[in-house]
Amino acid sequence: MTKLKLGGPLEDDKPVKPTIELPAAVFRDLKSYAEILTRS
């Protein structure tokens, strides 16, 4: 396996909020999964 090496310190370390689009079926599955996790 190849190791990834960065060429120095990162200049910008601010948090990033990515936005993605999911198919409706994936979104429903994620909601169901989250619901199951909150029950335990």
Rank of each mutant, 00 (worst) to 15 (best):
E35I: 00
D12E: 11
P15F: 03
I20K: 15
T38C: 05
K5L: 15
K31D: 08
K5F: 11
K3T: 06
K5W: 09
E11K: 13
A25W: 06
T19R: 09
D12I: 05
A34D: 08
G7H: 01
L30S: 02
L6I: 10
P9W: 02
L37A: 04
G8Y: 00
T2Q: 15
K14C: 07
A34P: 03
P9G: 07
P23N: 07
V26T: 13
E35L: 03
K31F: 01
L10F: 10
L37W: 03
E21M: 12
R28V: 02
F27Q: 13
A25S: 11
S40D: 11
L4P: 00
R39A: 08
P18W: 02
L6R: 12
T38G: 05
L6F: 11
T38R: 12
R28F: 02
A34F: 03
A24E: 02
M1I: 11
E21Q: 07
K14Q: 14
S40L: 13
T2M: 15
S32A: 10
D12M: 08
T19F: 04
P9D: 05
L4Q: 08
A34I: 01
S40F: 11
T19V: 10
K31Q: 11
D29G: 13
G7Y: 01
M1A: 14
L6Q: 13
K31M: 06
G8L: 00
Y33P: 00
A25F: 06
R28L: 08
S32M: 09
G7C: 04
L4N: 07
I20L: 15
L30I: 07
A25N: 09
T2Y: 14
S40I: 08
R39D: 04
K17P: 06
I36L: 11
E11G: 05
L6G: 12
L10Q: 11
K17T: 05
P15Q: 09
V26A: 15
R28M: 02
I20M: 15
T19Y: 01
V26N: 14
T19W: 02
L6W: 09
Y33T: 00
P15D: 05
F27V: 03
P15Y: 04
D13G: 07
V16G: 11
K5H: 14
L37N: 04
A24V: 01
S40M: 10
P23C: 02
R28D: 08
D12T: 03
E35R: 13
F27W: 10
P15C: 03
A25V: 07
I20W: 12
T38L: 09
P9Y: 05
A24M: 00
G7N: 12
K3C: 05
P23S: 07
Y33V: 00
Y33A: 00
G7T: 04
P9F: 03
E21D: 06
V16P: 14
L22R: 04
T38V: 09
L6P: 08
L4E: 06
E35C: 00
P15L: 06
D13M: 12
K5G: 09
P15R: 13
D12V: 05
T38N: 11
E21C: 03
T38H: 09
I20V: 15
D29W: 12
T38D: 15
D29E: 15
